[in-house]
Write a protein that binds this DNA or RNA. Structure first.
Lengths: 157, 157
DNA sequence: CATAACTGTTGTGATTGTAGAACTAACCCG
DNA sequence: CGGGTTAGTTCTACAATCACAACAGTTATG
């Protein structure tokens, strides 16, 4: 990469309540930039989508529901899609036999979206593609990787 | 987050030439998962888009061209959009006075897309939002951050 | 020079995602 | 019970993205 032309002297943000720190350590900025580049460069939306024959939102639903059955609201919140569209997407996945809507145990209004067996299979394939680290990461020293893992493990919310 | 339900015993991928390693260190898998979660969780497409009044592809073009003027082809390749759509997006940005098409110095077919002054201003604002690290990252020890920065610096391709 | 390859554009159409109002069914609370 | 709220759906209209074919101008190649 050549030299970036942007003056990044003030990377503080103004409006948002989140990360409203005024003093961000430079090391954090650089580490963040490197991580962003690594992750965003390696995104394989195209590959995953055409491997499963699904649009990316649908894959995200699959991957989310694979962790645990979710209500429609939870899915919408996590994917930042509005309720109508969420309904549409889940309808489609249900029509394909990948998910099913179950009754919510305590709230009869809500529905729990869960994977069917073939949905699990699809989710597994998607996950295999998505969670394979890029070569340049996997090629690091075992020691460095261990350090990375340890530090980053503390961040998982 | 509760326990994931997917069996990730084999995260090796089959088809792609890239990362075709069969032996991926577990630490790499975990580090990768943590980084992905951090980056993808923190994406602020919505905020950036409504801050600039532009769709996300347009913001990406701005950010890309901010590094250095690019040909249409280079933009299309980097954003994985096809040429026709790239033309459309750059047209729009040009109409808004954020970028301009200049003549390519050596190839008269090609055009170099560069930022106008107000485009630079917009890119600066976008960058400020996008490159601000999440709080949980910035909140790490100075030592840990330094280690992260050092290890990750070696990966920037 | 003639042909082939490349860069970018135009035009058309399909697919995907976004936004809003209106509605049903179920829950909650006084 | 009755009014207010929530979860999800339907319907509508629209913006954004993607895909395909055809084209002009320029460059490269034999």
């Amino acid at each position: 990469m050549s030299a970036p032309a942007l003056d990044k002297s003030s990377a503080a943000n103004d409006g948002e309540p989140e990360d409203s720190d005024d003093l961000v350590p430079p090391a954090a900025l650089e580490a963040w930039a490197a991580m962003r580049e690594l992750v965003l460069d390696h995104e394989r939306k195209k590959e995953v989508c055409e491997a499963l024959g699904l649009s990316f939102v649908r894959v995200r639903v699959l991957l989310l529901v694979a962790q645990a059955p979710q209500t429609m609201g939870a899915i919408a919140a996590r994917l930042t899609t509005d309720p109508p569209y969420t309904t549409l997407v889940v309808d489609d996945l249900e029509r394909r036999g990948l998910v099913e809507r179950r009754a919510h145990p305590t709230d009869r209004r809500a529905k729990l979206v869960a994977l069917t067996p073939s949905g699990e299979e699809a989710a597994r394939r998607a996950d295999a593609l998505v969670s394979a680290p890029p070569t340049r990461l996997a090629a690091l020293d075992a020691d460095d990787l261990e350090v990375l893992r340890t530090i980053l493990a503390g961040l998982s919310g």
